[in-house]
Each structure stands twice: as C-alpha cells, then as structure tokens.
Amino acid sequence: MTDRSESAASPASGAGAQLRRFARSLLTALITLWLLVTLCFLLLHAAPGGPFDSEKAAPPAVQAQLAQRYRLDRSLPQQYLAYLADIARGDLGPSFQYPDFSVNELIARSLPVSAGLGGLALLLALLLGVPMGVLAAAREGGRLDRALMLLGAAAQALPKFVIAPLLILLFAVELHWLPAGGWVAGDWRYRVLPVIALMLPNLAWCARLTRSSMSEALAGDWLRAARARGYGEARLLLVHALPAAALPLAAWLSPALIAVITGSAVVEQIFGIPGMGRYFVQGALNRDYTLVLGVVLVAGALVIAVNAAVDALRGWLDPRLRVMNR
C-alpha cells in the first residue's frame, strides 16, 4: 500500500515502479509454475501403474534397487520436496524410460528441434497468411477471396495426421524429391515436409483471421473518414486498416507460438523427428515422472514468457491497453 502511494506521489521513481512491477510479475510466474508442477506431480503419482510396471515383473531385489535409485522408496511428500529442491538447482533428474540421459539433456536436445521447426512454420504462416488475408479483404467476395478462403478452410479442416502422410506420399514416395522422414542434423531437406505440415493449419488460421479483422476495420468510421480525405487504396489498407486488424492476430499468436514450439507429437511421430512434442505423450504413457514434469515445466515457462512478450506487443499496437495497464 505504502509503496504504491509513494510511487504515485513521486513520478521520479518511475524506474523503481517498473522494477517492482517486473518483480511482481516474476513472482506470479514462479507461483504459477510451482502450482503447475505440484498439480502435475500429484496427477502423475495418482495415475495407476508406475514407471517400472511391465509385462515381466522384476525380482524384488531389483525393484528395491530401482526404487532407491529413483527415490520411489520414500514417502510422496519426501519425493515431492526432493524434486522441488532438484528443480530449484536446475536439475530435472534422470529419465525413467531413458536412463542413459538426464531430462535436462533430453529437453536440451529436443526443444531446439521443435522450436526451430515450429518457429519457421509460424513465421511462414504469418508471411504468407497476412498478405493472403489482406488481399482477400481488399476484394471481399471476389474470386481471389473465395479461392483463398476455400483453401484456408480445407487446410484448417484437414488434421495434421492426414496432411503429413499425404505430403510424404506425394513428395517422397512418388516424386522422390525429399526424404519421407527421419532427421539428419544440419540437413535442411529433412525439415521441409514437417515445416509444411506444421504451417498449413496455422496459415489457414492466420489468413482467415486477417481477412475477417481487415474487413471489419475497412468498414470502420475512421476508414471512411480517411477514404473521404482521398487516400489511396494501398495506404488505406496498409497504414490505416492493417494495424487495427493486427490486434486479433497478436492475440492468436501466443497460443499458436506455444503450440508450435513445444512440438507436435503427431507430426514428430509421423516424420520421425526428435522433437519435444512426443515426450508429452510417451512420457505419460511410460509414467516417466521426471520427463513429464520436465517438459511440462519448460512448456509452462514458455507459456508465461510468450504471453508476456505478446502482451507487450499488443500494448505497443493498441494504445488503449497501455492506458489500462497504467
């Protein structure tokens, strides 16, 4: 209470207020992550079956050894506290399913792969989708508009597990242009089809979103005013309508970005890509406690970071939000 009134009283301490605001959001972020980890920890341990349950039961001595190695012989609160202490040190622990690797290593190797593919896919979706949406809105109801929106609807309706095999059939099996899957570090040919598969649904979203918010903006009063001043069509579209239309796009961007960089389990499995997305599924099926917690923690941190960045972007795009934040 006191510091708020202080900062209001003396505008000179604006930097201090900003710092405090930053500290507060950091604290909120940490509490969110802690809640996330706690919830996930409880859910994982509540799920029936454990990481070492398999068809062949290990002898008791072996089970005891494994339980000790992974601290499963301790009580659940003890395991939880030990885990929190580990992650506070930045150690996500060893993987249950892949004992030759630590979870840190698995994520360090897979996240850049997913993020690289996903980031590229989203960038391309924006670079292609925004112009497509603008063009469609400029000639609303025209032939181009209808064609683009039909394509968009098709790309949006086709799930990735249909698109990906179709791409493989066409470009790898029939035409032999590109590999049908797999991964060779540094070889761009292995990235082309996955990027297309990841891009198409995003491209469709992006184009449709741009078109609808553009046509809304074009119908706005200020556009009519600008048009009455005799501004050219291009200036109307790009200078007056587009920034306004970019707002919904920015709102869409943060979930889309998070979804693509944490990886798509479907696309990764079909193309055999060593990305992070498959660990969400595999880890849960194998009851690989540490791996699931690790990827959830990383994804949670990404969500918070991306949301903060996109909020900043929206504030910059929309002056009204800046006023509200103050």
Partner: peptide, 18 residues
C-alpha cells in the same frame, strides 16, 4: 538404426528409398 515408431510411416520411408 533409425527410430520408426509408426509402422505406416516406416513403410513410406522404405518406399521412398530412405
């Protein structure tokens, strides 16, 4: 040795000569 979790994808990779 390549990871081929999905048998249908593996088949396509064989057909593609990979």
């Amino acid at each position: 040795f390549v990871v081929t979790e999905d048998a249908a994808s593996e088949l396509k990779r064989f057909q593609a000569g990979d």
